[in-house]
Amino acid sequence: MPSLLLLSSACYAGTFLTHALDNLQDFIGQHRLEGQTIALVPFASVLRDYATYTQGVQEALKSLPVQIISVHTDLSLVDTCGGFLMGGGNSFKLLHDLYKYNLLDKIAQRVRQGVPYLGWSAGANVATPSIHTTNDMPIIYPPSLKALDLFPHHINPHFVGGKHHQGESRQERLAEFLALNPSSVVDALPDGACLWVQEGHARYLHPNNTLMLQITHPYNATPLSPGASFEL
């Protein structure tokens, strides 16, 4: 079964990926990835070129005992890497390019066969059945909103409660999604959160005592504390 570490965000408390280093280290150790090549998929990046984006990720994760190489330099890495690192940015751009380079099915197949997958923000969104619950603007059109479908719930990263523009709220937007997709489950993850997924269950983690919401139709929101696990 897929083994995933899905982060809501790369930045938390003003730093890039620092909050997740312990979890990333544990994930790498558990899957014996030390010394192996991790394929970074940088296609969610829009305003930074892929080389600059890759350098930023490599610098942030330089303490990890792996070699991070971007697939934009060699698409064949998808077939040989020891693990995947799906970067954040714009979910529509990321999914568009996964289709463009015929990587969606290849990555999904390898992860289902046991290759570990780590992703944040857009990289967490595309691990789910679709990107319907992304916060991003559709700046480019992928052939479909269907994504990798490695994790059965939908994810809303960067989740914040309360009212926003003209009284709208993230809760109302997710309720609209659930009204049209009543069998779906949405995991609303605040910044700093991650889901560690393995062996048919997920564990919610957060560096602070911040709750996540697990939301079902019509809008039944169950709060989960850090350390809580749930079956998939």
Rank of each mutant, 00 (worst) to 15 (best):
G161A: 13
F43E: 00
V111D: 00
I131Y: 03
C81I: 05
K93T: 14
Q25Y: 07
L17N: 04
Y141H: 13
G88A: 11
N102Q: 14
I38F: 06
A127E: 05
H158T: 04
G56H: 07
D149A: 15
D136C: 11
L64M: 13
N102G: 10
K93Y: 08
I140H: 05
Y141W: 05
S70D: 10
I28V: 15
L77G: 08
L118Y: 10
L94G: 03
D97P: 01
Q30R: 15
H154E: 11
N102W: 01
P142E: 06
H31R: 13
V115A: 11
D136K: 11
Y101I: 04
V126Y: 02
R112G: 05
G83W: 03
V66G: 03
R32Y: 02
W120C: 03
P152F: 05
K62Q: 13
R48P: 00
D22N: 12
K62S: 14
T128W: 03
A44Q: 03
P152V: 14
L77N: 08
T54K: 00
I131H: 03
N135T: 12
V46H: 06
V71C: 13
G161V: 09
S91R: 10
L24I: 15
H19N: 10
D74R: 12
V41T: 05
I107M: 14
L33H: 02
A60S: 12
T37D: 13
A108T: 12
F159M: 05
R48M: 12
A60Q: 05
M86R: 02
H164C: 01
H154S: 06
G114T: 08
D26N: 13
K93P: 00
Q67S: 14
K100H: 15
A124Y: 03
A147H: 04
L118F: 15
P129I: 10
L104N: 07
N102E: 14
I155T: 09
G35F: 02
I107K: 02
V41A: 02
L118K: 00
Q109A: 15
Y50L: 10
M86Q: 05
L104D: 01
Q25F: 04
L95C: 08
Y53L: 06
P152C: 08
G56A: 09
L77P: 04
A44V: 10
I69Q: 13
L33N: 02
G162S: 08
H154K: 10
N90G: 09
D22K: 12
H153I: 07
I28M: 02
A122E: 01
W120Q: 03
L61R: 01
V115Q: 07
S63F: 00
L150K: 09
Y53D: 00
Q55R: 14
L95E: 02
H72K: 07
D136G: 12
T18H: 13
H153V: 11
G161Y: 00
Q30I: 12
H19V: 07
D136T: 11
D136N: 11
A20V: 06
H164A: 09
S130R: 06
H154C: 09
H158G: 08
Y141C: 10
I155N: 02
K146H: 14
P157S: 10
L98A: 09
L64W: 01
